[in-house]
């Protein structure tokens, strides 16, 4: 095709394209404005504040890298970060395994019943996190809680979930498994999309159920697994509501707070709104942002080896 012909063809297409681009931006503008005003703007401001002694009340002055240097020497930053990472390591695989098990069961039952169960599983997802925190204290009370009562029925002397440092995080993990409905729904959709002929081919090859699951189901839903891995990891690293409600939400509970439940965002919140060190809290927020970015980048890198995208090049 000659250059002249190409130009003739490109001109009207370019005009259309520009118009379409403008229209796209117009439709996207509510989100773009929201993102700039409510997300990007505050992020940039918090980055600036992280280099100041801002407390929202007094005159603000720059402190250079002081807040970041203090982060490195603050034992409570280390403690809260390690609590958060341990919690993430416990809750993310637990959520994925339980959700996958529930989704697998749901995918085997009739469509009408599946709808009912899907709703039932999803219901706890809409329960306020604060309510879950309060419920935690009731259900996991070491002496009169329902969990230890149930364990007692099978001869197990349950631990002191809310006071024993070693059991606080496992207790919170168990409590949070109650609200896996969102992940179940994602897995269920992924399972329903696995081509039946792959299972038939596997059956013809005489594979066991476990092999079928391991070599057909998991690869075919690996995209969904990867998506939830990322989302659950970020969510776990930002955990706040339930633990705060249970251990820090009132003056009385704060007096008896357990350091095992001092998650990073709780400590950040304390620094910002209890101790009025907002500059320092901003630095903490940026440290968490960097950590999340690094973990996500590692997950994306690793996923290239394990995640199968139908029609994709990976």
């Amino acid at each position: 095709m000659s250059t002249a012909t190409r130009q003739r063809k490109r001109r009207p297409r370019g005009k259309n394209q520009r118009r379409e681009t403008l229209a796209a931006f117009a439709f996207l503008s509510p989100w773009i404005i929201g993102f700039l005003v409510l997300t990007a703007g505050p992020m940039i401001i918090s980055l600036v504040l992280s280099f100041t002694n801002y407390d929202g009340l007094q005159e603000t002055r720059g402190v250079g890298w002081d807040n970041y240097e203090k982060l490195l020497s603050d034992p409570k930053v280390r403690k809260s970060l390690s609590n958060t990472l341990i919690y993430a390591v416990m809750i993310v695989p637990s959520t994925m395994i339980v959700s996958l098990a529930l989704a697998s069961m749901l995918s085997r039952i009739g469509r009408r019943s599946a709808g009912v169960f899907r709703t039932l599983f999803y219901l706890p997802e809409v329960t306020p996190k604060v309510a879950i925190g309060v419920l935690f204290l009731l259900l996991f009370n070491g002496q009169v809680g329902m969990v230890n009562w149930a364990l007692g029925l099978v001869g197990i002397d349950g631990p002191q979930w809310s006071t024993d440092e070693a059991w606080v995080k496992p207790g919170l993990v168990l409590m949070n498994l109650w609200s896996v409905g969102g992940t179940v729904v994602i897995y269920l959709a992924a399972l329903n999309n696995v081509p039946r002929d792959l299972y038939e081919a596997a059956d013809l090859d005489g594979v066991s159920r476990w092999q079928r699951f391991r070599h057909v189901t998991v690869p075919m839903i690996s995209g969904a697994l990867f998506f939830t891995l990322i989302i659950q990891t970020i969510s776990a690293l930002q955990t706040f509501d339930e633990a705060y409600a249970a251990f820090y939400g009132s003056a009385a509970s704060a007096s008896y707070s357990s350091e095992a439940a001092l998650f990073y965002l709780i400590y950040l919140f304390q620094q910002a709104f209890q101790f009025l060190h907002m500059g320092y809290a901003s630095a903490m927020a940026w440290l968490l942002f960097v950590i999340i970015m690094i973990i996500t980048a590692i997950q994306v890198k690793v996923s290239k080896r394990f995640v199968y995208y139908e029609g994709g090049d990976r």
Partner: peptide, 11 residues
Amino acid sequence: GWGSFKAFRDS
């Protein structure tokens, strides 16, 4: 001990 003491008190 604190664990059982607080658990009982919380009830």
